[in-house]
Nucleic acid binder design. Sequence first.
DNA 1: CTGACATATTCCCATATAGGAATATAATAT
DNA 2: ATATTATATTCCTATATGGGAATATGTCAG
Lengths: 117, 117
Amino acid sequence: MARTPTTSDAFNAVAEPQRRRIIDLLALGERSVNDIVEALDMRQPQVSKHLGVLREVGLVNVRDEGRRRLYSLNSEALRPIYEWVTPYERFWRERYERLEELLDRLQRQTSGDEPEQ
Amino acid sequence: MARTPTTSDAFNAVAEPQRRRIIDLLALGERSVNDIVEALDMRQPQVSKHLGVLREVGLVNVRDEGRRRLYSLNSEALRPIYEWVTPYERFWRERYERLEELLDRLQRQTSGDEPEQ
DNA sequence: CTGACATATTCCCATATAGGAATATAATAT
DNA sequence: ATATTATATTCCTATATGGGAATATGTCAG
């Protein structure tokens, strides 16, 4: 079998850095293809292709306005990623808290009986 | 150019569903390759290969114990994903809150002057 | 209708998968 | 030393990618 296709889910669609840039831009509001091309300094065909992938996994919506096509973000589609990764946050947070506590203890332990330098 | 390599960052490493399963398992604690093979019902070589990718992007640590190799999760490496996706949560949360508010208003509006059925 | 603008599609290619199968390497036990 | 167990690596193949370049499609203006 080959690698999981980019269009198979949000995880794969978002793995490509350029597509994350597009998403980050669309977070600011609706944009035409050309807006994206200029803002991100990419070639038009590649932007269209990336948008195609994003559309296929439901990450963006499209709306026709004259001869332009306005793309907007559908943030809901990011939810599976958010929900998968969020539980892991407690691991490094806990570690951080333990570190803080440790530093605190060291601080108290050394204050007063150590000559400052 | 080809697709962004799986070993280029956590985003790409994690795009593969089997690798997420491995991560989810390691979240429970250190595991040997064979533990993973059995728990996830995968072939040993594929597990080793997936672990290689995860190792390369720093998502797991290894420790030798006799003839076994114990892999553990390094959740810190998930942080870039967490930090990228988290800001988007407010989008759907806001939408949800607006919906709640709307339902609340409708509730108040209809209560009392509508025959129950 | 024609030209100009906006977007999508097609063709090409180098590259990298993920899994299967087989085998290599490593460590331990006897 | 040899067998056994645990893990890694190699070779294979079908498949898909992302970018470049060129072109097709669509839509408006005059």
